[in-house]
């Protein structure tokens, strides 16, 4: 299997405190790689560093053999990495369809000037993006809701919409920040199934999730972070058996299966 993402010695300080300290891991093609750890362990910071919203103080991120150092968030997205946000960042006043079509921004080519002279929805590109967005909306289970404003959806549906939006540009790697938070158990099961289907289709995913049941079910490998440092890396079975992990994290968490 080929290495898709290579994180090496990633470090970031906030006011003298290391939020992320010398973290290294690799994500393979068609792999679900999970980052777990207590709140404040640095998981979301890792996401922000990979997607370019924050700049690392040290370390490197290499994607498909190319360094992402110094790239802006939109360039990293164009390289093939998209993400969802822990506290949802939907385009709330836009419809579900518009959210997903906005997510497919990278698929289009129509620039500012051409947008001025093109009648809405009349171009082939626009029709194609609309068709694909509608298909994706069906696929994540939002069929029939395309015309609603995103903010009007129930919370669980909003999570799914964020995932659809992140998938819309056809990324090779998707960063999912607590996709199951706020979902009920049936929805969580559905989500886990969907993530596994995406993996079968060849998508790689970097997953931050507190729901251990889901993590253990879908993840191929897991890295445990504590106070910004990696304390363990292995398969779900290995992680569950790791005494240090149990001490540092799992022991405190009642949700562990």
């Amino acid at each position: 299997m080929e290495v898709l993402l290579e994180v090496e010695g990633l470090t970031r300080y906030f006011g003298g405190v290391a939020a992320v300290k010398e973290i290294s891991f690799q994500v393979q093609e068609a792999e679900i790689f999970a980052l777990i750890g207590p709140n404040g362990a640095g998981k979301t910071t890792v996401f922000n560093l990979i997607t370019g919203l924050l700049a690392p103080d040290a370390g490197s991120v290499v994607f498909e053999g190319k360094s992402l150092a110094g790239l802006k968030p939109h360039q990293i997205a164009a390289a093939g990495i998209t993400r969802t946000f822990q506290n949802l960042q939907l385009f709330g006043n836009m419809t579900v369809l518009e959210n997903v079509m906005a997510g497919a921004y990278l698929k289009g080519r129509t620039g500012f000037l051409k947008s001025l002279v093109t009648w809405p929805g009349s171009s082939r590109e626009e029709k194609l993006i609309r068709r694909e967005a509608l298909a994706l909306i069906d696929e994540v289970g939002l069929a029939g809701l395309a015309g609603l404003p995103a903010a009007a959806l129930p919370f669980g549906r909003q999570r799914l919409l964020e995932i659809a939006r992140a998938l819309a540009s056809g990324p090779r790697l998707v960063l999912l920040d607590e996709p199951a938070a706020g979902l009920n158990s049936a929805e969580t099961k559905e989500l886990a199934g969907y993530l596994k289907r995406l993996r079968e289709e060849g998508k790689s995913m970097l997953l931050v999730e507190h729901d251990m049941e889901t993590v253990m079910e879908v993840a191929d490998r897991i890295m445990v972070l504590n106070s910004g440092e990696a304390i363990a890396l292995g398969t779900p079975a290995e992680i569950q058996a790791n005494p240090e992990v149990i001490k540092a994290y799992l022991g405190e968490d009642e949700r562990v299966a």
Partner: peptide, 22 residues
């Protein structure tokens, strides 16, 4: 249009817009 969606997206969440490639 595509551009207009992007402009509206920026207004709603600049971070999400950036990480969607805008």
């Amino acid at each position: 249009s595509r551009t207009g969606r992007a402009l509206r997206a920026i207004r709603e969440s600049e971070h999400a817009a950036q990480t969607a490639g805008m």
